[in-house]
Design a protein around this nucleic acid. Sequence first.
DNA 1: CACCAGGCAAGTA
DNA 2: TACTTGCATGGT
Length: 220
Amino acid sequence: MGCREDLLKIYGLLNEYFGDLHWWPADSPFEVMVGAILTQNTAWTNVEKAISGLRESNLLSPAALLKTDEKILAEILRPSGYYHIKAKRLKSLVRFYFDEYSGNIDTMCNEDSTVLREKLLKVEGVGPETADSIILYACRKPVFISDSYTQRILLRHRIIPEDADGATIRTLFMTHLPHDASLFNQFHALLVQTGKSFCRKTPKCDFCPLRFLMMPDAAK
DNA sequence: CACCAGGCAAGTA
DNA sequence: TACTTGCATGGT
C-alpha cells in the first residue's frame, strides 16, 4: 500500500493540474497561527471576513490579542462561526505563545518541531491538524498535515484501509516522502483543493486529475 | 430547502 | 477505548 511512487504519482498529477497554490494565504507567520484556529471546520471565505475584522481593529498582533477581552474578540470573530469557542482558543494560543516563546516567532520556530508539536497539542483548541498547520505554514518546517480530505481521497483510491486514522496517514506520508517543507506545503494544499473541487461527499470525478488513477492491488 | 466548510473537546457507554 | 454531540456563520 501507499508506497513512495503512489504518493508521488498523485502529487505529480495534482500539481500539473492545479499548479502552485501558494499556501498559506497570510501576511505573516502570526497571521497563519490565527488563521489556523479560525479555519477549524470552517470555509476559508468566512475566515477572511474575521481576519479582515481583526486587521481593521488593529488586533492582528500577539500583544493586541493578548490584552483584548474575550467577549470583545468573540464579536469580531463572529463571521468565522463558532465564535465563542474560537475567541477562547485564540486567547489560549496567544497566551501560550507569550508564556513559552515570549511572543517571538523565531524563538518558537527554532524549537525542535517534534517538541513544538507536543507543546502545541497541549494548548486548548489546538489539535493535530492545527498544530501541524502552524509548524508547516508558519515555521516552514517539514511536517505533513493530514486532514479529512486527505483521508477521503486516499480511501476513494484504495491507497489506505478503511480504518486508517489521521496519525497513520501522517506517518505514511512522512515515512515515504522526503522531509521537504515545500513538498508538504504544496501537497496538502493540492489535496484540499482536490477535495473541494472533485472529492466532496457526492463526488464529481468527470474531470478529476486523479480519475485514471487505479490501484486495485492496494486495497485490503 | 439541505448540505457542508482547511476540527476539537467534552460527554456517554 | 470508541462513538456521539455541541459549536455557528455563510455559501451553494
